[in-house]
Design a protein around this nucleic acid. Structure first.
Length: 268
DNA sequence: ATGGTGGTCATACCA
């Protein structure tokens, strides 16, 4: 049984609902996780996605900033809207779903971007980002309850040299500094997570999910970064069939600066 | 070294 899950930083769900509808209609993932919805819960546009068959809609939003949402064609049970670092930001939502005889705990994350200055002593946003990924070490792939796990989202870190257009030129740029990439890798290893994008696409290959709005002709210069991620527990890693990065979506009308990533599993 | 674009909400702030 095929089972697919997509993640996409939408950068305003209300402004880009037409793009969400287009994506769901054309690609029909079983589940879509959005980040940067920038929408308070009382104003969340759930009806348009329900009409497309995504009857199960969970969201954790706030006014103006951040915000995550998870849509599903099959029943979702809300698990937690977790807050990190003692700050009331809407950056996480977890839910459980059944697929192929497995119970899957699904985490949807929007990790802080971290500001411009990569020094935690002088930039509180960078300090917050580092503290956030440390606190994320509590999120494990195996919780000893027999459930599988998936973690997706905009993690705002490009861990591998091939996850950025120029490793050397970005070593001191927030998203690719050693303290961040090592922190993310430590969290992934400690939690027993598998990087599904890199299981399917060899680590030697350049792979990006984000291209800045500030570069005109983003596709000619191709100065991208892999900021969006799909991780799973090892059992689901073994069931992975395909990963697709939808680069064409960066060229859609009034696009997000991130593109969707879709992982497809072959379950029993 | 600098500024480039885009979203929110109406002013700076954030990415």
């Amino acid at each position: 049984m095929p089972f697919s899950i997509a993640t996409w930083n939408i950068n305003s769900v209300r402004l880009r609902m037409p793009l969400v509808q287009r994506f769901l209609s054309e690609y029909q993932p079983d589940i879509l996780c959005l980040q940067e919805t920038k929408c308070p819960d009382e104003l969340f546009p759930a009806d348009p996605v329900k009409e497309l068959g995504y009857e199960h809609v969970l969201f954790h939003g706030q006014k103006g900033y951040h915000g995550v949402a998870t849509f599903s064609r099959r029943p979702l049970e809300l698990c937690e809207k977790r807050r990190f670092c003692g700050i009331r930001d809407s950056r996480h939502l977890s839910a459980t779903v059944e697929a192929g005889g497995k119970r899957i705990l699904l985490h949807n994350f929007y990790v802080p971007a971290g500001g411009d200055e990569p020094d935690p002593e002088i930039n509180p946003k960078f300090r917050h980002k580092l503290d956030f990924i440390t606190e994320m070490e509590a999120i494990r792939a195996d919780n000893g309850d027999g459930a599988s796990s998936i973690l997706v989202g905009d993690l705002n870190i490009a861990p591998l040299e091939t996850d950025v257009w120029s490793h050397k030129q970005l070593l001191n740029v927030v998203s690719h500094t050693p303290v961040e990439t090592e922190g993310l890798t430590r969290m992934m290893d400690k939690g027993g997570w598998i990087d599904l994008m890199r299981r399917h696409i060899p680590p030697e290959e350049k792979l990006y999910t984000w291209w800045s709005y500030r570069a005109r002709e983003w596709d000619v210069s191709d100065r991208g970064r892999r900021l969006d991620h799909v991780w799973s527990s090892p059992d689901l890693g073994n069931a992975l069939a395909y990963v697709s990065v939808l680069k064409e979506a960066r060229g859609w009308d009034r696009p997000s600066d991130h593109v969707p990533v879709i992982a497809t599993f072959d379950l029993d």
